[in-house]
Design a binder for these strands. Structure first.
Lengths: 206, 206
DNA sequence: GTCTATAGGATGATAGAC
DNA sequence: GTCTATCATCCTATAGAC
C-alpha cells in the first residue's frame, strides 16, 4: 500500500550539496514511503550509493536527518507565508486569507514528499530536535490566524467559530499531497485557487 | 513529540473480548502514539500483561493486529454512513451532505486513536491485508460523492469542482482527531455541526 | 493459553584502516 | 570521506514444556 505517489524527491533550493544533499533526498523518499522507523540507515546508504557508516560523516544520527527535513519543511512554509503577507495590502484581510491559503496549498503540493514527512513523521523526533520547527510552525499559525482576526475586526468575516474554521482551512492543504495528482488541465495553481475560494466562502457572513 | 493526546484506547462495540480485545486496545494505543513499525510485539505484550509469544495465540502476526484495527475503523465509518443515509430523506441532498459530514466528523473524533491508526498506519499493510478495508473505503466514498452529485443534479449545489470540494470536506474530518480537544462548552457534536455547516456552504451556489 | 528458551536476522552506531 | 569489521542490542516468530 502506497501512502503517496512515486514522485522524485525534491527540496527547496539552498539545502545542501553533494553527498549530504543526496542523503537528504533519498531519506526524504524513503521516509515518505515507508515512514521513519521502518527505514534503515543501510537502506538510505544503498539508495545514495555509499555504505551505512559513511552517513555519520554528514549527520550525527538517523534522527538528525529527519530533524533536518522537518526543519526544511517548516522553514519553507514560514518563508512563503512571510513573502505572501508582505505582498498583500495590509488593509485587505480577504486578500490576505485568500493568498495565505493559496500559498499553504501550493507549498504542500509543490513538495508533496516533504509535506508528508514534515507533518506525519515529525512526531518521531525528540523535543530537542523538534523545537526549532515547532517555533516556526507557531509563528506561521500566528500569521494565518492574524489575517482571519483582522477580517473579523473589519466586519468582513463572521465565522461561527474562528478556531474551527481556521483548522478546516489548514486541513484542506495538509491533506492535499495525499491525493492530488496534477494534470495538464488542472495543476497546483488551480487547486490553490479553488481552495482559496472555499476558504473565503467559509469565513464570509452567510 | 506527541502525535495525539493521551486518551484511553476505545473500540466500537462487538470487536472481541478477553485477551484478544486487550491486545487490540493496547496495540491501538501504541500504534497511534509510536506508529506501527516502531512498536514491538514485546511492548504490546508488556502493556497487556503477557509475554510476546502469547500474542501469536490470538493473531498470526503483528501485521494482522494492524489489519484488524484498520478494518474495524473502516467498518465503523461505513456502517455509520449506511445508517446516516437510510435515515435521510432520499430527495433532500442538502440534508444528506449535512448528515454525512456530521457522521464523518463524529466518527473521527469519537475514536481519535482508531481514526489515526486507520488513516496513517494503513500504508504499512500488504495489499492482501489492506484489501477488505480499501473496498469499504471505496463504498463509503461512493455514498458521499453520490449525495453531492444528487445535489448538483437538483440544482442545489454548484461547486466549482465537485472532486476538489469533496476532498476538502473529507480533509476537515480526517484531520480533526489530531487537534480537537472537546470541552464542556464545545463537544464533538458541536464540531460536527460546525463542519457540516461549512460543507454545505462550500457546495452551495455563491 | 501461557510460559521459557531460542532461532535467525536486522538495527543504529563505533573503531580503525586507507 | 569512504571503507570493512564489528559491537551490543533488538526484532518477529517458532518450538516445546506445562
Amino acid at each position: 500500500m502506497a501512502r503517496v505517489r512515486a514522485v522524485e524527491p525534491v527540496l527547496p533550493p539552498g539545502n545542501g550539496t553533494g553527498t549530504e544533499l543526496r542523503i537528504l533526498l533519498e531519506s526524504l523518499r524513503l521516509f515518505a514511503h515507508q515512514g521513519y522507523p521502518a527505514t534503515s540507515t543501510r537502506q538510505i546508504a544503498a539508495a545514495v550509493g555509499i555504505r551505512a557508516p559513511s552517513i555519520y560523516e554528514h549527520f550525527p544520527s538517523k534522527e538528525h536527518i529527519l530533524a533536518r527535513l522537518v526543519l526544511i519543511g517548516h522553514r519553507d512554509l514560514h518563508a512563503a507565508f512571510e513573502r505572501t503577507l508582505s505582498a498583500c495590502d495590509p488593509d485587505d484581510p480577504v486578500a490576505q486569507v485568500r493568498e495565505l491559503t493559496r500559498t499553504h496549498v501550493l507549498t504542500h503540493v509543490t513538495h508533496p514528499l516533504l509535506a508528508i514527512v514534515t507533518n506525519d513523521e515529525m512526531h518521531h523526533l525528540s523535543p530537542e530536535l523538534a523545537a526549532e520547527a515547532l517555533e516556526l510552525r507557531r509563528r506561521s499559525e500566528v500569521m494565518a490566524t492574524g489575517a482571519g482576526a483582522r477580517g473579523v475586526a473589519a466586519g468582513l468575516f463572521a465565522p461561527t467559530d474562528a478556531v474551527v474554521t481556521a483548522a478546516a482551512i489548514a486541513s484542506m492543504g495538509v491533506r492535499a499531497p495525499y491525493w492530488f495528482v496534477p494534470t495538464d488541465d488542472y495543476g497546483p495553481a488551480d487547486l490553490a485557487d479553488s481552495y482559496a475560494n472555499l476558504a473565503v466562502r467559509m469565513l464570509r457572513p452567510s
